[in-house]
Amino acid sequence: MTSLPQTTEKKLGLVIDLDTCVGCHACVVSCKEWNTSNYGAPLSDIDAYGAEPHGTFLNRVHSFEAQPESGCSQTVHFPKSCLHCEDAPCVTVCPTGASYKREEDGIVLVNEDDCMGCGLCAWSCPYGARELDEIFGVMKKCTLCVDRIYNDNIPEEDRVPSCVRTCPSNARHFGDLGDPESDVSKLVAAREGFDLMPELGTKPVNKYLPPRLKDQPSKAELTPQHTDAKGLFAWLDKALEKL
């Protein structure tokens, strides 16, 4: 049934640090690479080498500019993928039972054997986290790399989502946000992590850490130097003034 579980044992999710993300899109590429060859149907590309390339991605990086009332604007690179919401509207709208939230760890998944490709779950998601694959006709979304994080066949350091493993600026963190003692929960508490569009009541598990505010440029003015030149420089100064 596509009813949501009352509670989940864990709340696995991501914490994304908007202060350190450099917008390199490495997480986008590694996500596509891992997920096109593992869980479910591949992530298809259409017209990949043509004039209008497009395709399915589970993670995308937007870049925004925030303009404070005074001072310089701030460029913020903004990775966005499924937030594995506690109150996930994409699960309850699903008519076939394909969309579900796992009781054990809170991961929201699509069982592609049941999906009929109606797209209603993508409509119900405020974040644009679900994309219908044009070739395979099933809904694709972030699986939190469910096929990595519990995988005994890969080295322990690789048992995190592909995007987290690959991020060169350490802007992505993975853990149990339901456990207040976990590293990710402490990070969220220390840095005042926030929810995206909290007004829609989806209670996202993934959190974002705000960018630190920029320093103001120094107000000190340049002072004129060598006003008391003598000899050759005094003569040069005068001569140049007269030109």
Partner: peptide, 22 residues
Amino acid sequence: ATGLGRIGKVRLLEPPHSGENY
């Protein structure tokens, strides 16, 4: 949507992809 209202007015600087998508 971005939570960046705490800094100020937000505008899109670069979309995540150059083409269309679903």
